[in-house]
């Protein structure tokens, strides 16, 4: 890989952010984690990532945030062509049905994680989403097999006309 694929976490409660980042630690050797406490900060972070030629593979976003809420942030990410492919996940205990429907329809929400989350289920979602991202982007699956879903990556590899040389 000639560039980084970031995981972006947006959460305003610092203790909760701590716990989220801790559960993402295992991915950090392949996917550096960036964090933001509100949507405005996240927009700056995302811009910085884009400016250095890197990508955001996965956005994990709380809904109730000071200022712009999580769903609105995800919608703005969806409409930015740099981040349309970024996988978008809502991590919240507070989004109502309407917000969630809006997120699914307008931000193409890929997954919803309800708080409180469990590490195993949380990490499975992260693995699945990042795997989808890597496959969609057509990156070399071999680089990610040891961290992500190796079966799905092998399946992608099978369809990609690999050859001997």
């Amino acid at each position: 890989m000639d560039h980084q694929i970031y995981i972006l976490v947006i959460e305003d409660e610092l203790e909760v952010m701590d716990a989220l980042v801790k559960d993402l630690e295992e991915f950090e050797q392949k996917f550096p984690v960036e964090s933001a406490n509100n949507a405005e900060e996240a927009e700056q972070v995302v811009q910085g990532i884009a400016n250095s030629g890197d990508e955001v593979g996965l956005i994990l976003c709380d809904h109730v945030l000071p200022g712009k809420n999580g769903v609105d942030f995800l919608i703005s990410m969806e409409s930015n062509q740099l981040f349309t492919d970024s996988r978008k996940v809502l991590v919240t205990g507070q989004a109502g049905l309407e917000d969630t429907i809006e997120a699914i329809n307008k931000a193409h929400l890929d997954h919803y994680i309800a708080k409180p989350w469990k590490k195993e289920g949380f990490q499975k979602v992260v693995v699945d989403q990042l795997t989808s991202f890597v496959i969609k982007k057509g990156y070399n699956p071999l680089e990610f097999m040891s961290v992500l879903n190796s079966i799905r990556l092998a399946e992608a590899l099978r369809g990609s006309q690999l050859t001997d040389h």
């Binding site: 610092l14 203790e15 952010m17 701590d18 960036e34 964090s35 933001a36 406490n37 900060e41 972070v45």
Partner: peptide
């Protein structure tokens, strides 16, 4: 140690 804001962490 109280947790830090992400701006500070960065």
């Amino acid at each position: 140690s109280a947790p830090m804001s992400s701006v500070d962490i960065r």
